[in-house]
Design a protein around this nucleic acid. Sequence first.
DNA 1: CCTCATAGTGAGCTTGCCTCACTACTATTC
DNA 2: GAATAGTAGTGAGGCAAGCTCACTATGAGG
Lengths: 154, 154
Amino acid sequence: MAEDQHEKDGRADEWRDVRTDTDRLSELFWSVARQLRHSSREALAPWDIAPSHSRALAVLMHHQALRLSELSDHLHIAPRSTTDVVDGLQERGLIDRMPDPHDRRAMLVSLTDEGHRVGTAIRAARDADAERFFGLLSEDDRADLARILQTLRR
Amino acid sequence: MAEDQHEKDGRADEWRDVRTDTDRLSELFWSVARQLRHSSREALAPWDIAPSHSRALAVLMHHQALRLSELSDHLHIAPRSTTDVVDGLQERGLIDRMPDPHDRRAMLVSLTDEGHRVGTAIRAARDADAERFFGLLSEDDRADLARILQTLRR
DNA sequence: CCTCATAGTGAGCTTGCCTCACTACTATTC
DNA sequence: GAATAGTAGTGAGGCAAGCTCACTATGAGG
C-alpha cells in the first residue's frame, strides 16, 4: 500500500505542471482520509464491530432512548437502513428495542448495560486513535487544521 | 442534509467539554470528507459514471496501456475487482482490452478515443469542482492545508 | 367515522469491494 | 524436454452498507 503511494507520487511528477493546486488538495485529502479510515478500523478491531454499528453506538451513548427515526436522522441514513443497524446491535445484545409508550407505532432504542460498557470502551479507543493520528501535528498545526476544516464544512 | 448537520452541531454543545481536541478533529475531518464526496458526486453527475469507473479512467489517462494487474495496483483494489471495473468501462466503450503480446496470460487495458474524450472532460469537471470547493480558502490556508495533510499522510 | 400522515419493516436492488478455485499460460528445474 | 511451480485473469459467490417501494399498524384532524 505504502509502496503504491510512493510510486504514484513518482508518476505524478510527469504531469504535475498541468494540475491545479486545488486538484492536488483533493488527492491529498482523500489520501489522508484513507489513512485515517484504516487507522480507525484497526482501533475498532478488538471489538469486532462494524463501523456502522460503532457510529450508531456513539450516537446512543448520549441519548438514553431514541426513536428509530431519530437515530436515522443522527446517522444521516434512511430509516430502513437504521432498522438493519439496530437489528445488528440487538443481536449482539448491545441495545434494547421497546415500543414507545406514547406512540405505539414507534420504537425506542436504548443501550443495554453491555452496550454502555462496549460503547465506553470504543470511545476510549477512538480517542486514543485520534490522538495517535493527529498527535503527529504541532499544537499550532492542529489549530490551523481545525480552523480550515471548519471553513470547508457546510 | 445541511439541516441535520446544523442540528448535530447544536447537540454537540452538550458534551463538547468531555472531548479531546483530536477527537474533534476526526469528526471535522469526516464531516468535510462527506461534503467533498457529495460535491464531487455532483460534479460527475453529467456523465452518469460511477466513482470507481472515474478513478480507473483517471489512472488510464496517463498510461497508454496498462496490464489489468497494474491497474489494480494503482487503484489499490484486488485484481478480481479490477476485472469488474474494466468490464464496466468496456461496456461503455471507454476502454479496449487486448492481449499482451509479450505474455499471453495478461491483458492490456487502454483508453479508446471516446474514453480519452470523456476522461478529459471529467478531469476538467473535477478540477473545477476542486477549485469551487477549496477555492473558499485563502492562498495561505490552502498552502497550510496542503502542508498539514502532507504530514498526516503515510 | 373517514381520510390522510407517520413509524417501522419486508422484499429486493445497487455499489464496490472481497476470497476461493479454476484455466491458461510462463518460468524453472531436474 | 518433460514435470513442476508460479502468475494473470476471471467465474462463482459473498458481504457490508446503503437505497427504494410497498405494506401494516397506528395516530391525528376534519
